[in-house]
Design a protein around this nucleic acid. Sequence first.
DNA 1: TCTGGGGTCCTAGGACCC
DNA 2: TCTGGGGTCCTAGGACCC
Length: 247
Amino acid sequence: MAICQAEDADGSLVMALPLAQQLKQRILSERQLTATIGIASNKLLAKIASDHKKPDGLTVITDQEKVLFLRPLPVRTLYGVGKVTEQTLNKVGIATIGDLQDYPGDLRALVGSFGPKLKQFAFGEDDRPLEIGDEIKSISGEETFLNDTDDRKVLRACLKEQAADISARLKHKRLGAHTVQVKVRYGDFTTLTRQITIETPVTEASDVYRLGCFLLGRNKLVSRPLRLLGLGVASLREPSGQQLVLL
DNA sequence: TCTGGGGTCCTAGGACCC
DNA sequence: TCTGGGGTCCTAGGACCC
């Protein structure tokens, strides 16, 4: 659990401590669960603080101490640094956030446009706003088969089920999709995606299903057995109520 | 971890239009 | 007809997060 304050004054962070204690106490008495809480002035630090001293921890990172606090932590701790970026940084001798702070070169040469942001993160600076909205950007489903298969009956049934699920979720959110996407994975883990954008948004399961079949066929994706089959929709908007133009 | 599922964001290339 | 630039959209893949 991360609490982050918009104000940068360290005083307000410390003032949040009793609230955090109360929260922990309430979770314990009502749910019999421990909780770890982090308090800081932005999302990045509050998240790092909330991962600190698990379980049952309570950590405040003040603006005054943030640079020193971060120094010994591995670069992987930072938001946006996964396995690949971690390896890239490690190769030039950057292992800790302190190394990142001290790095004299241009990080863009290593991580592209993420460079400037990464440098800011290393110093505990993060101006990303808190987002409370719950806007959905895509809906998808996928299934990994027990055994690789190119059995059309099995694949059709799978696609139909996914289309029905997607359609139900679209209807529940009162949305239509302008993009339909299929995903396949073969036995050697090769993964491909193919998508199509349509002018009239789709909502009905039959339309999503048909477009999924169309994509599989058009791109000859079932030329060998599949380990995974996925179906998804994106570019979600209010449906227009018009009928889908047949392909 | 020989690899599950559902997401978001970014980037690069190509098509197309003006 | 050819060349070029710029903008936008679509597509595909990769990295990352939870």
